[in-house]
Design a protein around this nucleic acid. Structure first.
Length: 222
DNA sequence: GACCAGGCACATC
DNA sequence: GATGTGCATGGT
């Protein structure tokens, strides 16, 4: 059977209508999002939740308080999230970075997205995905997060994304012009939710997305 | 007990 | 640039 071709915007509408995304990164404050973005790297949310609860207790998520902790202390606080030596160092690196802006996120948001991305990627422990999470949810920059959930969903909709992060993102980027910051956050939330909703191959075989096939817009310069 | 979960840096070819 | 490996916990 042939599947109906839909655009990314149409896919977003389908996801929005069928899933209760409640649309946000699960966190109350900007700082909590930043630390959560690091802690979630190759881990599950439950383990991260334990670590975040400890971190809130110890620091209220404030960078100024985090800086007072030794690496060893921080490691024990976030231990449950796994890879804790590296993640503690990464959080410290972010603290140093934010310190150069006096922990003023409003000031950071005034800088261009490309510049911010470059600065974040220069920090050890911050890769493309983590940088994009911080850009999209904390620094109010419009971007598309290429995570395993996005790859999996696109795959089931007939599009295998390129292996390298930049190439994958570039392929999706032209279609993002129709999205607002808020809807891009919602889109990512919905995509994550598909991954959490459809776990087995069976789940993917028969669901509200089955009749559709994604068609992305032309790439720049083609 | 094996396998997995919203990565990343580094070594090697 | 592509591919392989170590990092570590808690749930199923």
């Amino acid at each position: 059977m042939t599947r109906k071709k839909i655009t990314l915007a149409e896919l977003y509408e389908l996801l929005y209508d069928h899933l209760n995304s409640n649309g946000w990164w699960p966190a109350r404050t900007d700082w909590q999002i930043v630390w959560g973005a690091v802690l979630i790297q190759n881990t599950n949310w439950k383990n991260v939740d334990y670590a975040l609860a400890n971190l809130k207790q110890a620091t209220d998520f404030l960078p100024a308080n985090l800086r007072r902790l030794s690496n060893q202390e921080l490691e024990q606080i976030i231990r449950s999230a796994g890879f804790y030596v590296r993640k503690a160092q990464t959080i410290k690196n972010l603290c140093d970075y934010f310190a150069t802006y006096h922990d003023n996120l409003a000031q950071l948001r005034m800088k261009p997205a490309a510049e911010l991305r470059q600065e974040l990627l220069a920090l050890s422990g911050i890769g493309h995905e983590t940088a994009d999470v911080i850009l999209l949810y904390v620094l109010s920059k419009e971007t598309f997060i290429v995570d395993v959930y996005a790859r999996r969903l696109f795959d089931h909709l007939g599009i295998v994304l390129p292996k390298t992060y930049d190439a994958a993102q570039e392929l999706v980027m032209p279609d993002l012009t129709l999205f607002t910051l808020r809807s891009l956050q919602e889109l990512h939330a919905c995509i994550v939710l598909t991954g959490q909703t459809f776990k087995t191959e069976q789940d993917w075989q028969n669901n509200f997305l089955t009749p559709y096939q994604l068609q992305l817009g032309p790439r720049r310069g083609e």
